[in-house]
């Protein structure tokens, strides 16, 4: 970590160490060079997971995920960091555990599954959320029953945590993970969340229910959300449509009042989904690429 751009940015570390999630749109501002190649500094980052400076540990965990360091030693060190007790926020959160869980989701090593399932019981909401997202990314169905237990009590229990800016459980992440993991047994438990009072939770339910039932009714609700009054919600609906690969949404996506980079990513999701069963010269593939060209 010797180049200036890769030094821990203290202001940034402190921002991330608060109870906030990482802004999903941040990627657009990162220079393309930052995405490149296998970093020689990986061993240093692994060692830094035990650095005496807690902000350096926190940064190292993020860094290993960011640069996809799929080394066995890195994975083991991150799994160990899921039990960290040293790095605590004023509100009792576990910043290092959060980042370790996020990183493990990016590294694709299923050895992390059991430890991530245990994180679903962590007292820190953001650790549970990061674990659910990582389990979704790892794609291992063994976590389904543990995820389902976070939906216990149904919509009635799914209230805001007193005095906190989030619900009592990371419903959005849990429901999305269940959809991605093809947990068809979860349909009846998820269905009521399509009427939840929080828009993001509703979208997550629509997305998941479409994946589990292939009923266009749910996908069309997401298309409707593309004209939501808040740009964050429009971005979120775009990402959902990209994730489920709902090709009939293509024109609505291209016209949504959202930055082109988000629309390109969503259309890429549609095209990738389409190409899994069709070739690149199908009418729909050409139409999708022609739309993508207009967004460059």
């Amino acid at each position: 970590m010797d180049s200036p751009s890769k030094q821990p940015d203290l202001a940034n570390v402190q921002f991330l160490a608060t109870e906030q999630a990482i802004p999903p749109e941040a990627h657009e501002a990162i220079p393309p060079e930052a995405h490149e190649a296998i970093p020689p500094e990986a061993h240093e980052a692994i060692a830094n997971l035990r650095h005496e400076d807690l902000s350096i540990r926190y940064y190292a965990a993020w860094w290993l995920g960011k640069f996809r360091v799929r080394d066995v030693v890195a994975v083991d060190a991150l799994i160990a960091a899921l039990d960290d007790d040293a790095n605590r926020t004023a509100m009792g959160g576990y910043p290092l555990r959060r980042n370790a869980a996020r990183a493990l989701g990016k590294l694709g090593d299923k050895r992390a599954v059991a430890a991530l399932i245990r994180c679903l019981d962590c007292s820190d909401f953001y650790v549970r959320e990061a674990a659910a997202q990582a389990l979704e990314a790892l794609g291992d169905a063994s976590c389904i029953s543990a995820l389902l237990s976070l939906l216990d009590g149904g919509v009635d229990a799914a209230q805001f945590a007193p005095g906190l800016p989030h619900l009592v459980q990371p419903y959005e992440a849990v429901i999305e993970a269940l959809g991605t993991l093809h947990a068809t047994e979860a349909v009846e438990q998820i269905r009521p969340f399509a009427d939840h009072g929080v828009e993001r939770v509703r979208y997550a339910a629509m997305r998941s229910l479409y994946q589990l039932t292939h009923d266009p009714y749910y996908a069309e609700h997401l298309v409707g959300a593309l004209s939501s009054s808040e740009v964050q919600l429009r971005r979120s609906a775009l990402a959902d449509l990209g994730a489920i690969g709902y090709v009939p949404a293509a024109s609505a996506i291209a016209q949504a009042p959202v930055e082109n980079s988000f629309k390109l990513l969503a259309l890429k999701g549609l095209l990738g989904h389409h190409l899994s069963e069709n070739d690149a010269h199908s009418e729909a593939a050409i139409r999708l690429m022609t739309l993508m060209d207009t967004l460059l």
Partner: peptide, 20 residues
């Protein structure tokens, strides 16, 4: 990236370099 490969293929076809 399959999407990049597909776009290159579409370019070739639309330039009629490779038969459909």
């Amino acid at each position: 990236d399959e999407v990049v490969r597909a776009r290159a293929s579409m370019a070739q076809h639309q330039l009629t370099i490779v038969p459909y």
